[in-house]
């Protein structure tokens, strides 16, 4: 194509189109850049920092940074892997992630990233913060214990469902997902068919009464690491 440009990721030249982000170009070329808050159906916000790569030597979130011709990107260096591990580690200790009884286990993107990175135990002290469960909605549950503040639910509700059910509120350690209802999720316009109910990467926003329907062995990341589908398309 006439408008195609060339970038380099970890020494490998790949073709890209100027309107793509680094993440999109990498995906198309079969190079997996780990990510958590990013989702192909949602506008990227560069919030979780998992997809940070070195772009001409400077750290950039691959999900928001557009490609430029000749860009040199480092994705799988030891330093970047360590940075990503640190982020995942912090997410584990700042929430209450009890994988052993979580219905998302096996299909959870946070867990899958930790598996991919070979994390055996977090290096930071566990906070065991006090968090709430909002089960007021008849069909959807919000378990703040498992929230990683990716804001996918916020964006999905606005961008895909044409609603405004969720919102990020607070600052710093107090930051959490709030709902635009009088009291709780049950008072909002949320419906079980909303995309916002299915794009949560972890077990925070889940549809009720479907937990554990998929047997162990057939869950998303039981057999192959997260990102394998992208790498599988590598030519």
């Amino acid at each position: 194509m006439s408008d195609s440009i060339t970038i380099t990721i970890d020494g490998k030249e790949i073709e890209a189109r100027p309107e793509q982000t680094i993440l999109e170009a990498a995906d198309a070329a079969g190079v997996y850049i780990p990510r958590l808050c990013s989702h192909p159906d949602l506008k990227p916000i560069g919030s979780c920092r998992v997809c940070v790569v070195l772009c001409d030597g400077r750290p950039q979130a691959a999900c928001v940074k557009p490609v430029m011709d000749g860009m040199v990107i480092e994705n799988e260096t030891p330093a970047i892997l360590q940075h990503r591990k640190n982020i995942i580690d912090m997410m584990f200790v700042e929430g209450n992630h009890f994988c052993m009884f979580c219905e998302k286990s096996g299909s959870c993107e946070l867990q899958a990233l930790a598996y991919r990175f070979g994390i055996t135990a977090p290096q930071y002290p566990f906070q065991f913060p006090e968090k709430e469960i909002d089960a007021s909605h008849p069909d959807v549950m919000l378990d703040h214990n498992r929230c990683v503040m990716c804001a996918r639910c916020v964006r999905a509700s606005q961008e895909l469902d044409g609603k405004n059910v969720f919102q990020s509120i607070g600052r710093g350690f107090e930051r959490k997902i709030g709902v635009n209802g009088e009291r709780a999720l049950g008072d909002t316009e949320m419906e079980a068919t909303d995309r916002a109910a299915e794009l949560c990467p972890v077990g925070c926003v889940v549809k009720k009464r479907v937990g554990f329907a998929t047997p162990i062995g057939r869950r998303d990341y039981d057999a192959a690491p997260i990102g394998s589908n992208i790498e599988g398309e590598r030519s």
Binding site: F98, M100, T120, A121, F126, F128
Partner: peptide, 18 residues
């Protein structure tokens, strides 16, 4: 060696932590 989630992260007994 800490083996199992209880040893490595507290596990189910740690549900009483808050």
């Amino acid at each position: 060696i800490a083996f199992g989630d209880c040893a490595t992260m507290g596990g189910i007994p740690a549900l009483r932590n808050n």
